[in-house]
Write a protein that binds this DNA or RNA. Sequence first.
RNA 1: GCCGGAGUGGCGGAACGGUAGACGCGGGGGACUUAAACUCCCCGGCCCCUCGGGGCGUCCGGGUUCGAAUCCCGGCUCCGGCACCA
Length: 805
Amino acid sequence: MPERYDPAPVESKWQGLWEREKAFRAEPVSRDGGSPDMPDGAKAYVLEMLPYPSGEIHMGHVKNYTMGDVIAHQRRRSGARVFHPMGYDAFGLPAENAAIRTGEPPATVTRRNIARIRTQMKRLGFALDWDTELSTAEPDYYRWTQWLFLRMFEAGLAERRQAAVNWCPVDQTVLANEQVVDGHCERCGALVELRQLTQWFLRITDYAERLLDDMAGLVDWPERVLAMQRNWIGRSEGARVVFRTEDGAHEIPVFTTRPDTLFGATFFLLAPEHPLVAELVAGRPEAEAVTEYVRRAVQTSLADRSDAEKPKTGVDTGRRVVNPVNGEELPIWVADYVLMDYGTGAIMAVPGHDERDFAFATAFGLPIRRVIAPEGTAPDEPLEEAYSGPGRLVNSDFIDGLEVDEAKPAMAAWLQERDLGEATVGYRLRDWLISRQRYWGAPIPVIHCPDCGVVPVPDADLPVLLPDVDDYAPKGQSPLAASEAFVNVDCPVCGTAARRETDTMDTFVDSSWYFLRYTAPALTTAAFEREVVDYWLPVDQYIGGVEHAVLHLLYARFFTKVLHDLGLVGFVEPFARLFTQGMIYRDGAKMSKSKGNVVAPDEIVDRYGADTLRLYVLFMGPAADDIEWSDQGVEGQRRFLDRLWRLVAGQEAGPLAARPTLEQLADDPVALELVRKAEATVQKATVDITERFSFHTAIAAIQELVNLGTRGVSAGELGGAAGAQALRYASQTAVSLLFPFAPHVASELWEALGGGSLHRETWPQADPAFLVRDVVTVVVQVNGKLRDRLEVAPGTPDAEVVALA
RNA sequence: GCCGGAGUGGCGGAACGGUAGACGCGGGGGACUUAAACUCCCCGGCCCCUCGGGGCGUCCGGGUUCGAAUCCCGGCUCCGGCACCA
């Protein structure tokens, strides 16, 4: 072997071998013409979130896929059948925006980017099953996205309805709630507007309870991700209470988490968008002022509307509702702090015990009434501010004297008996708006017929192919509308001239089921086969960025539950174990082109080799944490590989060494120490990778072992027969342990040490005989109290220990 | 405000109730070299010191324990999520 380590020839040699052998191909996979056999034994589906094919991969991808690669290698070596596929989340705005600038079709841009990314991933030597590669933007994939949409449509889970929706004025499309961050478009940062539009929704809210419940027990996920999903779903227990207008003409239900404070309600509020507002004031003197208030409120941006610091505004309608518990008439106001899409769009206002209602009452001179008195407070003591702590109910008739926690169910029961309401649960989660008025996505497969209404495209007519258009620019409606040939169709039911839906689907729909399609990447007769998805799924280990905690990860869970209910899959959670990686920073900021602090993976591979890069991204620090990139840190990992290479190159050619026995090592303490360290390292590295996700400490342990060997050599202490064998054995151990992290150089060194192809090897097993410590700790107590701690040889007689103490 | 996570050298971090600082970066010293680079060896928490050692050290204050970075209670600070959600 060459004296110096040169990564380029080593890496291309092994990459070529793995590719020729299809070394990481997985079975079973569904293909046309017959179902595969289901094997016995352990399986491991190791998956990383698929990349969006913008120009090239970045360091975050390298870290993500290297982690997955290490897990996949490790599981394979421990005997599991491993599935480790890769694909591309290929629909979406960046390719489309590039198309608008250059005129080049998004499909062309996307396919070129995919080819580039594939090349980069192959250069990094990832152990992927390239035969199952997929792109969500290809018709043979999105055909099935459309097919799944139609199944949801049939089940009543996809529906078209009018609602106040988020509109991004820059991207010229509507957005899901999950894509609005602090009132701004997640993609472009523009201030989001609210518009009343008719759009397609998926009824994710029907699954709110199960999305919440299944988090406990069914998934092993980081606590912070579970917390984010919990926050996002936003469950709150309360009651629905029905109020009637004073003339008895209208029922207006409200949702409240505080039914116990019903006697404290002194006024009643409607959201500006509430459908009853116009009717209630029609023909009344207040009509003009109310209409004007509503008009202004509706125009206010989402960000301004939801600013809690803003002074309270509102307008009196002159109308009244009757409080169902005491028959009291309460004035109805319209106020923009009441949101139409949470609860019922109407609230009972309890200024004594709600901060916002208190501010409103103060601003407009409305009465404030105490109904809860904390310990030691008189029932009629005035309130300086809204009180929301514990206490007993006062001024509340039949629930007087109850604690808050007792009063809530008591009131709910009272209401239910009289048919005036009931205990209920509210969620912050909204339905998933999936329509996009953009070109580069899967067309929504429905047809609008003047006679039949919304008609699904028959399965046999799928895919609804994206038409070629000349202009991809958004104009407030989908660019697909410009294609006459696309739009004008006959109704599949009655044959009348009809129009196709021109909106496309949110790309998060595409990525909500891709992990199923890997099991049937080229199947033309179905999206996937139940037997095969049930074999591989749930994903045993999923890895990706935390930024998808409430986007992709929530949507994919929802899809999986829907598919389960439709009988298409046999599991309810897609990802059994999740790991969210931290971001890579440089100069204190996230790497980004605009900040000019990007380190391109290719440059590092060119300069130091793929193995050095792989090693470094995992050695940097805990994989879950955000860590600062260090150019010198990369060099440190290259120095380590150089050192290991020299250590192996300095040894004579020959077959693999057997582990020396304790007898052989009896007269050579340095050699014994080295073998013992090798055994301990096997144990530690295995635990670190499989149980702790602690790659950096696993690597550190391997480095410690190599350092011990290197120091022994330079001190001339491993010269004898036992020493040489120990050194060879320790080198083998280090090389073998290094394989998942740095597979090319490890394979090369393993071969040089006399081994076969390392990717077919099993994980080295530690010999317990070497792991026994030769000292034990003895705790010494005198008179039951006095303390000391001694290290003695195992089996030392008590008398001797006492003498030492 | 509510929910979650975290505070250890100059830096990334290790130790998962048992020698605090593994491994690496940066720094210092030495060997090799005409010289440099590479490589190899050694030293790096702080403060004293008679050079043998001593004292203090893991955000702060208490506690449990023979023993706490680690467990418990109370603070402080930072990061992330949600938030006019009734």
